[in-house]
Nucleic acid binder design. Sequence first.
DNA 1: ACCGTTGTAACCATTATAGTTACTACTCTT
DNA 2: AAGAGTAGTAACTATAATGGTTACAACGGT
Lengths: 138, 138
Amino acid sequence: MKQISTRFSIAVHTLSLIAVSPRECTGDYIAGSVNTNPVVIRRIMGMLKKAGLVEVRPGVGGASLLKAPEDITLLDVYRAVDVIEDNQLFRVHEGPNVQCPVGRNIESALQSELSEAQSAMEHRLAQTTLSRLIERFE
Amino acid sequence: MKQISTRFSIAVHTLSLIAVSPRECTGDYIAGSVNTNPVVIRRIMGMLKKAGLVEVRPGVGGASLLKAPEDITLLDVYRAVDVIEDNQLFRVHEGPNVQCPVGRNIESALQSELSEAQSAMEHRLAQTTLSRLIERFE
DNA sequence: ACCGTTGTAACCATTATAGTTACTACTCTT
DNA sequence: AAGAGTAGTAACTATAATGGTTACAACGGT
């Protein structure tokens, strides 16, 4: 199957780097640490900017956090990079046969359970802050 | 982003139908309830069979559960249909720069947090049984 | 004015998905 | 023995997300 995009892990990497690094972090520098193309980083930075997590100095270059690392959770990043469609982790097949009792009810019955499972995952993501992550490798 | 494949929800639909239906469930009948192509159902049935959840009578047709609905959880189904690759919900970017303290440590630091989040989701799936689901629409 | 940087658009190769057609193998019924 | 209906699979297709790439315009400091 498809997994959740590396956009998420790259975004966490990027934010960690900005938080930790003493020097100005340009897109190229970050790309060098992540080991990918600078455009990939710029795309992700655009999402992080839109989410209000970072600001970027255009022209001169360099990014900085808009929130303290203690106040950025993995859930914030996960949401910022728009990593699941329509905010629904599980996709449910559409148009089941409404003549059938199963077909008629499966969607709502499943959705509530799947939402619970998704929430459990996201709740756990919300418990890890960026500061907690970076303290492991400073 | 990509979401988790409808294979999962179709598999749950299929098992529910088998559990609920008084008549023999052929692939074509299930496909009619799910509203998809019979081959899609047969493929999923193959996975459910391999996981030991159902048995299918070849030739004559019809499927039946190999476990009681109380003993089949959503996690069992989710695992059976092989819905995430390598059993890792989150994909982490590969080959970060090991010269960089962030690049060197991000993978293991992230992996442990992401595994926790994934486990939280799967644990919640394990709490819902097929019987609990079907009692809502019998 | 120049240079390095950011912000995008456009394109491409790869991959998973889900539907479809087609064919073989199997079992029961007649 | 033959036929009808079903399961099992292979193969092909269209669609879409991903992640990398090139190219270029806009911006700001030296």
